[in-house]
């Protein structure tokens, strides 16, 4: 488990006291609260105009202009196979850097709401339960048991990996129908 969570502690672990502390950003998608390591986050933006990219995977919302750089934005609701909901004004785009196959990719993803920055001890984190088996749950690293509820820790690398893309493409039904037309 601790191996798995190394990803979370990252460079913030400098002294003994911090060793077991995870510094996270938590956000809400649907009914659940999710968390990713704060060091992976480049920035959090308000919703902006997203340009649709035809014939990309269904969960890819489109591309945005991040200060002159064009980056893809993933809709986490679609990525998790949830229903689309009405805009509330709380939506945010979280921009993260993930390790691609050859180089680092900068990707944005939409969440319903960004909750808070928190520190939790790694001792309250349990491995992902096996019941949510199936390839698609590989991106769940573990579950944090907080007083107020459960916190799902995500692996960004797995969430946005190339393999996941293919799996999701077959599962969600890639809108490549037009490509054959």
């Amino acid at each position: 488990m601790s191996d798995q969570l190394n990803e979370f502690t990252g460079e913030s672990v400098n002294n003994q006291a911090d060793k077991d502390l995870l510094q996270l950003v938590s956000f809400v998608v649907g009914a659940e609260e999710y968390a990713i390591p704060i060091l992976a986050v480049q920035e959090i933006n308000r919703m902006m105009d997203i340009t649709r990219v035809p014939q990309s995977p269904a969960f890819v919302e489109g591309v945005i202009n991040l200060r002159g750089k064009v980056i893809p934005v993933v809709d986490l609701r679609k990525r998790f196979g949830m229903a689309i909901h009405e805009n509330t004004g709380d939506e945010r785009i979280i921009v993260v850097e993930v390790q691609g196959e050859s180089e680092a990719r900068v990707i944005g993803f939409t969440v319903d709401k960004v909750n808070r920055v928190l520190r939790i001890g790694s001792d309250i984190v349990e491995p992902a339960p096996n019941m949510a088996s199936g390839a698609d749950s590989e991106y769940v690293l573990g579950v944090g048991k907080l007083d107020e509820g459960l916190l799902i820790l995500l692996s960004l690398d797995k969430l946005f990996s190339q393999r996941e893309l293919e799996l999701a493409a077959t599962a969600a039904g890639n809108d490549t129908t037009a490509q054959a037309a």
Binding site: T51, V63, V70, L165, T176
Partner: peptide, 16 residues
């Protein structure tokens, strides 16, 4: 601008 992320490839686009 390059549109080279694997998520946005595949369409008939040479860039953005």
């Amino acid at each position: 601008k390059p549109l080279d992320d694997s998520y946005t490839q595949g369409g008939p686009f040479s860039g953005a």
